[in-house]
Write a protein that binds this DNA or RNA. Sequence first.
DNA 1: TGTTGTTAGTTACAAAATCAACTGTTAATT
DNA 2: AATTAACAGTTGATTTTGTAACTAACAACA
Lengths: 144, 144
Amino acid sequence: MTKKDDFDLQDFLPYLLNQAAEESSLSFQNIYKARYGMLRTEWRVLFHLGIYGRMSAKEICERSKMHKTKISRAVARLEERRFLTRERDAGDRRLEALELTAAGRAAYIELRGVAMDYDAKLAEAFSPDDVAVLRKLLHHLAKL
Amino acid sequence: MTKKDDFDLQDFLPYLLNQAAEESSLSFQNIYKARYGMLRTEWRVLFHLGIYGRMSAKEICERSKMHKTKISRAVARLEERRFLTRERDAGDRRLEALELTAAGRAAYIELRGVAMDYDAKLAEAFSPDDVAVLRKLLHHLAKL
DNA sequence: TGTTGTTAGTTACAAAATCAACTGTTAATT
DNA sequence: AATTAACAGTTGATTTTGTAACTAACAACA
């Protein structure tokens, strides 16, 4: 199609990043949705606990940069599904230590496998050097 | 923090892309929100019409990959604000040709300027070669 | 101790996204 | 022509998110 204007939306980084992010998230999303009925916030919490182990909602909040209300709700849903347990911190009773149950851990392990395969498949589509550049720049952008 | 697990969330491409996309969208979002009270869907529609000129909602849908209900509502809001007009297509009366008004065009021009500056600022943080690789791979990912 | 400020997490309400069902129009098939 | 299917776009119900106000616990300091 002929453009009336020389600005290219497809090269505007925030737009392009969003398109790439949505597209690349899609098939992984289909899996955790179909398999466990999870939302994005939920798998993220699950992964944080799976990777780093027992931690509080506050810590997940800082690491993931998600808003605390999102985390609060994701934790509530994961608890309902018996994927995690909460334990009040004895030292500071405002804090709750969150920890995956066996079921939560099993779900994490399965989804981690899916994620690793998927990531490898994505990376395969490019040269290793390019992927390294991509990861480097994305890290940088994510920390702006 | 010590990891209990060797999977790295920060290197999982869909996660990393989302983080980078959210972060990089943030300050641009603040501008169109504060300046025009627009949502993301709305500036996208505005930009499609600004760049490509008169077109139907269907065409915006295909180009942007946004769901048609989002576009329908964004168009309705932009029309309320007198940023665009609709005209029934004489040949196929299901279609509506959308076109920016002078006010819509002015808003687009201003936001385009902001976008270009912002994009240049982001790109400046990296080497030109790296940016080229980034754009290339993002294009590829966006079209998966 | 009492007051004030801060923090972790929840909840209530409003805004927005999603999904399915709907209207009106065109195209295809018989 | 009549029927059926497909399509552009809208609307309504439900789900999810965002914002702000809230509770309960701790900290600092007079």
